[in-house]
């Protein structure tokens, strides 16, 4: 059963460097690679099941990007697709008794950090100096507040995802130790599947929204 403590495999000067979450993420990379190659190997005009499923996911991502960011910003779709797929698989590893990599603050911080990086860079690229000026709006006195609320985004993103996944994991552990037979199935359905999918949605949508807001 998944452990609460994250197993550590390699350390540098005593601080963990490669942990169980990293290894699971490597496994997810391999899984996604295999999935991608299987999907794009023999693409037919009338798609088979796997191709159809991936086409639906791609269409969903395109729809989300179009409605939230505008169809001229489709260039973000590859990263958002990668993010969505990784989050989906990572959140659902709880179903197979693997400790979710997203239940590790490092993972969620890394993802939130990438989002933060994307927001700032794109805001700067779109508005150049105007972006830096926008921090001093409406009054220069507000600058620290604006900085902090910019930081609030990655903090809330990472802790939201982390908290949801950690909470789900602990609840599932307790359910398994109390009533190991039927109730965990409902628990898995609600906490792992439902919460996992919704948290993936929220993460991706917030990323998109804030990138758009920074660029407009």
């Amino acid at each position: 059963m998944a452990d609460i403590i994250i197993p550590v495999y390699v350390t540098i000067n005593g601080t963990p460097f490669i942990t169980g979450s990293v290894v699971v993420t490597w496994g997810i990379i391999v899984f996604l690679l295999v999935l991608s190659i299987l999907t794009t190997r023999n693409m037919k005009m009338v798609p088979g099941v796997l191709q159809l499923f991936m086409e639906l996911i791609l269409a969903g991502v395109h729809w989300m990007v179009d409605s939230t960011m505008g169809s001229h910003r489709r260039s973000f779709a590859p990263y958002l697709l990668a993010l969505a797929l990784y989050l989906l698989v990572a959140n659902l590893t709880g179903l197979v008794a693997i400790r979710q990599p997203t239940a590790d603050l490092n993972t969620t911080f890394a993802l939130a950090g990438i989002t933060f990086f994307l927001v700032q860079v794109n805001g700067f690229r779109a508005k150049k100096l105007g972006y830096i000026k926008s921090f001093f709006q409406p009054i220069p006195f507000m600058a620290p507040m604006n900085f902090i609320s910019e930081l609030a985004l990655p903090i809330s993103l990472s802790f939201r995802l982390f908290g949801n996944m950690l909470g789900s994991m602990i609840i599932m552990l307790m359910l398994y130790s109390f009533m190991p037979i039927l109730v965990p199935i409902i628990g898995h359905g609600f906490f792992d599947v439902f919460a996992g999918v919704i948290q993936m949605f929220i993460f991706v949508m917030l990323t998109m929204t804030f990138i758009t807001l920074a660029m407009d």
């Binding site: 802790f159 939201r160 908290g163 949801n164 949605f201 917030l206």
Partner: peptide
């Protein structure tokens, strides 16, 4: 609702 949940999640953490 999922975003409104966040405060509760922070407390849970």
């Amino acid at each position: 609702q999922a975003v409104a949940e966040t405060a509760g999640i922070f407390s849970l953490v």
